[in-house]
Structures are given as structure tokens and as C-alpha cells.
């Protein structure tokens, strides 16, 4: 017996609505069905990760060796050795041998992150902060030049005050306690305000994304009800 597309779509909609209601039932209380759903989702993703790993390892590591054992092993000796050492982390006695692979991964990862942050964020952003004060490179119109200057001042102020907030060079006071210099404290208050605004924006974006998800699920529920009314 073969199922047509509409039937599969209908059962898919039913499954989607059921899972949606299960997730929404968390508002009332936690229950085993919801946990079953979450565990099922985690297991599904773990199985999918295994598939992904196989999809990566098989063409990159296994297949070359199967195709040309000598050449493949010669070519992939170092990655193969590192992978083998990483597998030793599963055995407590031999796990220190796997630190070599972890050190390689961490070192390469940090190098990529730091290098990318410096070249992709730090230098370009510093340049972008300085750029508005380069009057000769700005537009010739006076209004645009003034607008760029004001914008540059605001950006500079925001940058300095935000960095001042993260300045922790405090000194002990006579009355006791530790406090930063007064001028740094004043700047840090402005930076704190700007950081709060940025975090508020992020939260607002997160909230809007959630609202859109709610609307999409509501629309799916309504669509299912409408489908049921029309079909039945």
C-alpha cells in the first residue's frame, strides 16, 4: 500500500501540531511526554552527528587509503596519527597521549580566532573609527563633512567609554575599598549605558525572533484546523 503525498502531508501536519502542543504544554508543567520529546530530539541530533562525521571521515580519511593504501597512508600519516591519539582519550591510562591532538586543535583554533579577530575586527574597526575624522577623504559637501564628523565623534565617544567600562585599573582608597579614578568612573558610566543599550537591542532582536516563531506556529495550528474543517 502506497501513501500519496497529501496523506503524508496530513500526517506530517498532525505530527507537527502534536509536537507543538507538547512543547507548549511545558507552560503548565513538565511531564514525561515532553521529556520523551526532548530526549528524542537529542538522540536524533546525535545520530545525525554520527552520520555527518562519517560523511567527513569517509571521503577524507578512509576512502583515500582504500583507493591507494600506500600513497594514502603516506599522505595521511600525520592526520591519521593525530586521530589515533585522539581516540586514546577514551582510555584513562592512555588518555595523556591524546593531549597532543588536543593541543594541536586548540593551538590551531586559537590562532585562527586571534588572527581573524585582529585582521577582521580590530584593525578594520579602528580604521572605521578614525575614518570620519579624515576630512579630506570625506565628501566635499560641508553638511556631509559635518555630519561625518559628528558621527565620528559619537563613535569615538562610544568606543572610549565602552573601553573605559572594562578598565579595571582600580586603586585602594583611603576610606577603604577599591575604586577607579574619577574620570574613568565617569566615562565608564557612559560606556555602561551604551552597553546596556546594545544588550537591549540584542534582547529585542531575540524577542522579535521568538514572536515570529510564535506566529509561525500559530499559523501552522490555524492551518491545520482549517485543513481539518475543509477535509472533514
Amino acid at each position: 500500500m502506497s501513501l500519496d503525498f497529501l496523506t503524508l502531508d496530513f500526517f506530517g501536519s498532525v505530527l507537527g501540531v502534536a509536537l507543538t502542543l507538547l512543547v507548549l504544554s511545558y507552560l503548565i508543567r513538565d511531564h514525561f511526554l515532553l521529556r520523551f520529546l526532548l530526549y528524542g530530539y537529542v538522540g536524533l541530533m546525535a545520530g545525525f552527528a554520527v552520520v555527518l562525521a562519517f560523511n567527513i571521515l569517509y571521503p577524507s580519511l578512509i576512502l583515500p587509503i582504500l583507493a591507494d593504501p600506500i600513497g594514502g597512508i603516506t599522505q595521511l600519516a600525520i592526520p591519521l596519527a593525530l586521530c589515533s591519539l585522539l581516540f586514546l582519550k577514551a582510555f584513562p591510562r592512555l588518555s595523556p597521549l591524546g593531549n597532543l591532538s588536543l593541543a594541536f586543535l586548540v593551538g590551531v583554533g586559537l590562532a585562527a580566532l586571534i588572527g581573524g579577530a585582529i585582521q577582521g575586527t580590530l584593525i578594520p574597526q579602528i580604521r572605521a573609527t578614525i575614518q570620519p575624522f579624515d576630512i579630506h577623504r570625506q565628501a566635499t559637501a560641508t553638511e556631509e563633512r559635518l555630519s561625518g564628523l559628528v558621527q565620528g565623534l559619537l563613535i569615538l565617544l562610544g568606543t572610549i567609554t565602552t573601553l573605559a567600562y572594562f578598565h579595571f585599573g582600580a586603586r585602594p582608597q583611603v576610606r577603604g575599598g577599591v575604586r577607579r579614578a574619577e574620570w574613568i568612573e565617569s566615562l565608564s558610566r557612559i560606556g555602561q549605558l551604551l552597553i546596556a543599550i546594545a544588550l537591549g537591542l540584542i534582547f529585542a532582536g531575540l524577542l522579535k525572533a521568538g514572536f515570529v516563531a510564535l506566529i509561525e506556529r500559530t499559523q501552522a495550528l490555524l492551518q491545520f484546523v482549517i485543513t481539518l474543517q475543509r477535509g472533514l
Binding site: G116, G120, G205
Partner: peptide
């Protein structure tokens, strides 16, 4: 999003890089 910007910086023409992101990524 930041990692993609940083790692593609200088290796790809910026005029050909587009981002379609969630609203929460916009401030960054």
C-alpha cells in the same frame, strides 16, 4: 556571523558578501 566576517576578510571581495540574519544579530 562575526567569524565568517573575520575569516573571509581579505580573501573575498566584500562587495559580494551578504548577510541575512536574525534580528538579534543585527547589533553585532
Amino acid at each position: 556571523a562575526r567569524q565568517w566576517v573575520e575569516q573571509l576578510n581579505g580573501k573575498y571581495t566584500a562587495s559580494k558578501l551578504l548577510f541575512a540574519v536574525s534580528a538579534q544579530v543585527e547589533p553585532v
